[in-house]
């Protein structure tokens, strides 16, 4: 544990002091502020802010993680040459990057909100957005890590990470829509719920949408979704699914790293 902590601290500090981390935080803060400013209220801006969180956070997380991994091979070799377990090295590195990314989102959102003088009611939605941003940072940083460890080549690794993002953020929804249209004669609300649990970006989006009380817009289907996601069970399953998206890639990249030649 001590080695993981030491590596985490080092990687975290290294990332924290990078221009990218500062730029990322400021970007989130300024876009939050700008959206609140231009739409006149947090409640109205929140949908746009949500779109930034569920699109940009995964993108930045995958990219920054891939870049860090592939640009720091010397450091990685130095660590691997030390008398410590590979799993410690990788978990420490992953945590260092992911925690920095998560903090950037969380802090950026809080800063953007603070600048735009929030009301008490907005805090709840803000906290939900922050939670989503944090979870997505961990998830996509982990997935990028897994891809980086599973590929040899920098270009291919970054390409695959980018494709994964594109798939999760855009293409998956297209496939889902095709499914809905093909089976539109059947009650497929449950399928929709299961399909969305399988994609952390969709899950985040739906969760926030239902909190914003747009479920009334969604008619019968919306009532089914609200009934699931609005209960303790639904919240539990959703959070569980998000946590699995964090834990499983970690297991996979540790497993893969043990067998990898560097």
């Amino acid at each position: 544990m001590k080695t993981i902590w030491s590596i985490f601290k080092f990687v975290f500090m290294d990332n924290l002091r990078s221009v990218w981390a500062i730029a990322y935080t400021l970007f989130i803060a300024l876009s939050t502020y700008a959206l609140v400013y231009f739409t006149g209220s947090f409640t109205r801006g929140v949908v746009s802010i949500m779109n930034i969180i569920i699109l940009i956070t995964p993108l930045v997380s995958t990219m920054m993680t891939s870049m860090y991994f592939f640009n720091k091979t010397d450091f990685l070799f130095l660590l691997l040459a030390q008398p410590i377990k590979r799993s410690h090295t990788f978990i420490g590195m992953y945590m260092g990057i992911a925690v920095m990314l998560a903090l950037s989102v969380g802090f950026g959102l809080a800063l953007g909100m603070a600048m735009s003088a929030p009301r008490i009611e907005d805090i709840q939605v803000l906290l939900l957005l922050m939670l989503t941003g944090v979870l997505l940072s961990f998830i996509f940083s982990g997935l990028a890590f897994l891809i980086a460890i599973a590929t040899r080549d920098k270009l291919r690794g970054i390409g695959m990470a980018l494709s994964l993002w594109l798939f999760m953020a855009v293409i998956y929804d297209g496939l889902m829509l095709m499914y809905f249209i093909v089976f539109s004669e059947y009650p497929i609300e449950e399928h929709a719920i299961i399909l969305s649990l399988l994609n952390p970006i969709d899950l985040s989006r739906i969760f926030i949408m239902l909190q914003l009380d747009v479920s009334a817009l969604m008619g019968y289907s919306g009532a089914v979704f609200q009934k699931f996601f609005g209960t303790g069970l639904g919240v539990g399953v959703s959070i569980g699914a998000m946590l699995l998206w964090i834990v499983v890639p970690q297991f996979l990249f540790v497993y893969r790293a043990r067998r990898k030649d560097f």
């Binding site: 030491s6 290294d14 924290l16 720091k72």
Partner: peptide, 30 residues
């Protein structure tokens, strides 16, 4: 690897951290 110290060919370990912190890190993990 407890008996080995290694000096890699290229030494681009980190960008934003001081050398003394790097030495501290390796001391910690060894």
């Amino acid at each position: 690897r407890k008996d080995i110290s290694y000096m890699p060919q290229v030494a681009r370990f980190a960008e934003n951290i001081s050398a003394i912190r790097l030495i501290q890190l390796i001391s910690d993990i060894r």
